[in-house]
Design a protein around this nucleic acid. Structure first.
Lengths: 215, 215
DNA sequence: CGAAAAATGTGGTCAGACCACTTTTGTTTA
DNA sequence: TAAACAAAAGTGGTCTGACCACATTTTTCG
């Protein structure tokens, strides 16, 4: 009949209440949430139910817990979510090429973002990297790309990138070879000039070079 | 076994083990997971710890539970994830933008891949979608993009896309408006013709249109 | 006053107990 | 034999109470 079932699971309900509490009491990121025992009494449920809800939120990276300390509202920027999902989703991906492809998609776009933004492409870091290549002749692709990923200012994408990087597990450790240097220089130069397409072309040549040297 | 200091939280560890079990025993989507009591004994932990892990995965929509029935691995799709994350994060407009941006990066590249491949852009599905737009006038952006993601043949990227989609999915099932239709038609046409740039431009106009209609 | 020590608070984990519900099993019956 | 029914077993849902390990606060004492 119309008898109200607990349509939503208890722990989902608790998640809702929790959000209400955080909101009503204006607990800021980093702020402390009432203890599990207090919450249990306040919401009239068992502590274990409270914990199930809290653990869920923790897995999502929405709260942090410190043993002996308490539970705190997390900084929304560290989603543990990505890692956990990766555990389930990436696991079965044996095909490294897919990972590599995914990574390049992200990298390519980050380059575009940086190149097309006056402020971003003017960051001193590119000049610094370029100088480094010319002077020392050694630089790692990963380091360059990390700077670009960071510059592109999307933490979520950065997170995914780092994750893919771990999974692709490539032997890119090599110092840049003499063959690589002119490409790197061109890449960075075009990037700083805001020539998106040329920068991406150079980027792809660079990638192809490394890839070729491995088979 | 020695007294190991669990660097990672117990319930996270259990999540890992769970993944291993699902993998090793090749439990398919919809398949049944061992009962909580069995798992507790098998992993030598308390049932409550098992439950905390399971509840976390349930919140992520990775498993389903049926009271009295059992626990089952789910098919990644519409589950609490969106709702819960929205509940906590939606206020942070910035994060949503990041998700949306990440999603568009992937979509844009998938379009490129399809458009630049003779065989892919010739798939009958595009003609079918186009017809659908013209005849019924209604089509969802999500459905179109899903076809493109699938066609681009990178399962990993497809999965990431699904994840991001859940994160950012707009609550409204907006049918395509009259305003949208010409853009959709142009998009699909250019795609089929292999005009990558034009297709992407149309794609972005489409996105902008949807985005605009929401503020 | 300041440092050491004790008390308190908090999350982490476990064990056991019911409950409500579903599935399986076993028995009876048409 | 086959269908229908009833009993038993299995499973998730929840609560309680008990320790533990660690962190913070309070008290005590030099």
């Amino acid at each position: 009949m119309s008898a109200e079932k607990p349509a939503t699971k208890m722990f989902i309900q608790i998640v809702r209440e929790l959000r209400g509490i955080i909101q009503d009491e204006e607990i800021p990121p980093g702020g402390k949430i009432p203890s599990e025992r207090v919450l249990a009494e306040r919401l009239n449920v068992g502590r274990s139910s409270i914990r199930e809800a809290l653990r869920s939120l923790e897995l999502l990276g929405l709260i942090e817990t410190r043993r002996g300390g308490g539970t705190f509202v997390a900084d929304f920027n560290n989603h543990q979510l990505v890692e956990v999902l990766a555990m389930f989703i990436l696991q079965e991906e044996k095909d490294i090429r897919n990972v590599q492809a995914a990574r390049m998609i992200i990298e390519r776009d980050a380059i575009r973002i940086v190149a097309e933004d006056e402020a971003l492409r003017s960051l001193p870091v590119w000049e610094s990297l370029l100088t480094n290549v010319i002077m020392n002749g050694k630089i790692e692709r990963e380091d360059v790309m990390r700077e670009i990923m960071i510059a592109s200012q999307n933490r979520l994408v950065l997170k995914i990138w780092i994750l893919l990087k771990q999974y692709s597990n490539e032997p890119y450790k090599n110092q840049s070879t003499a063959e690589e240097q002119p490409i790197i220089k061109m890449f960075l130069s075009e990037l700083m000039l805001g020539h998106t397409q040329k920068a991406i072309v150079a980027f792809e040549e660079w990638a192809a070079l490394l890839h070729k040297g491995r088979e």
